[in-house]
């Protein structure tokens, strides 16, 4: 029901005039803060943009399970282990909500997953960094999930209904993730010198990659204009990055940790924390597949997909057997 023939007219000129009228009507709905729903008419480019963004978001949730999953068996206590398991389980659920939202636009989950496994679709650059110590799990919850929340809260008001509703659910669940991360870091900071040093080291390694999560600076971003016009995006990359920095600096101060940016200073007039230049070459390298863990992540996803094939096949075969059996009974 969610796939629709966008155009039935065979006359191209008529179709263009009709499309222009529909596009204007569509934009008027967006401007009036109406939500667009799966069966509504939408420009092909709006659909394409959303499928790209929502599926990338879904892939990120799934790949994001890998760096944290790395520490489940080595969590320092049962309490931490249960929490980390629950968190990774949530991320998997987030992937599911998002794939389902993307499917309302007419692409199947299988298709989207295949694109990811073929290396044709992106996922968040942040998950290509390794989790070397237990402190990384704390910093991921605090900062990576913190940045994700900053990004996702405005998406709860995205113009596309199914995406917005999925984000509301995701945001509710993320709050636990960020708090558990901060609690881990706080515990380390209140611990021995060695534990505090471990927390500082994790912050040093994650800080800059986390700032890159918000995407390229505004003047270099290619998707901002139309996404803003269509109210898929409510704030620019730089605006969200600034909000995140302003929220995070006091949190780091409370922990007694130093943000690894000697040039960072508070602008008294604006009240904003000004950060130094971000190394966008590193970002481009990671996106291009050359981050520290890109190959590992792809290999792990492909392995999991291949090794799970028999489960999907068995479930389909069982459903088919039951269908045949009940058909035979009815006959």
């Amino acid at each position: 029901m969610y796939t629709q023939a966008l155009n039935t007219s065979s006359d191209t000129e008529d179709r263009n005039i009709e499309d222009a009228a529909r596009a204007a009507q569509f934009q008027a709905r967006i401007d009036a803060e109406e939500r667009i729903e799966p069966n509504d008419w939408m420009p092909a480019a709006y659909r394409k943009t959303l499928v790209r963004q929502i599926s990338q978001h879904a892939h990120s949730e799934i790949v994001g399970m890998l760096p944290e999953g790395n520490w489940i068996t080595r969590a320092p206590t049962l309490r931490r282990k249960a929490a980390l398991l629950a968190k990774v389980q949530d991320e998997c659920g987030h992937g599911l909500y998002l794939y389902a939202a993307a499917e309302t636009l007419g692409s199947s989950r299988e298709e989207l997953v295949d694109q990811m496994l073929a290396g044709k679709a992106k996922y968040s650059s942040i998950f290509n960094y390794p989790t070397l110590t237990w402190a990384d799990i704390g910093v991921i919850g605090w900062l990576v999930d913190g940045a994700a929340i900053m990004n996702q809260i405005p998406l709860c008001r995205c113009s596309y209904g199914p995406y917005a509703r999925a984000m509301i659910r995701v945001c509710k669940e993320e709050s636990f993730h960020q708090r558990q991360g901060y609690e881990i870091v706080l515990t380390l900071c209140r611990g021995t010198e060695e534990q505090k040093a471990m927390a500082q080291d994790a912050l040093n390694r994650w800080w800059w990659p986390v700032l890159m999560m918000f995407g390229p600076p505004d003047q270099a971003s290619q998707h901002n204009d139309t996404s803003t016009k269509w109210k898929i995006k409510r704030f620019s990359n730089d605006e969200l990055r600034q909000k995140f920095v302003d929220a995070t600096v006091p949190q780091a101060q409370y922990l007694g940790l130093a943000i690894p940016d000697p040039g960072m200073k508070l602008n008294q007039a604006s009240g904003h924390w000004e950060y130094s230049a971000i190394d966008w070459d590193e970002f481009k390298q990671v996106l291009a597949g050359n981050g520290p863990c890109n190959r590992d992540r792809m290999a792990a996803r492909r392995k999991a997909h291949d090794e799970g094939a028999w489960v999907r096949e068995a479930a389909a075969a069982y459903a088919e057997k039951r269908r045949q059996r009940s058909a035979a009974q009815a006959a």
């Binding site: 309490r79 249960a82 929490a83 636990f176 708090r179 558990q180 901060y182």
Partner: peptide
């Protein structure tokens, strides 16, 4: 029994503010 799935299970000092 999985109270650790809720944000309130984690202690974040009041001074740190809303998270």
């Amino acid at each position: 029994s999985k109270i650790y799935r809720h944000p309130t299970f984690y202690e974040v000092p009041e001074e740190v503010g809303h998270m």
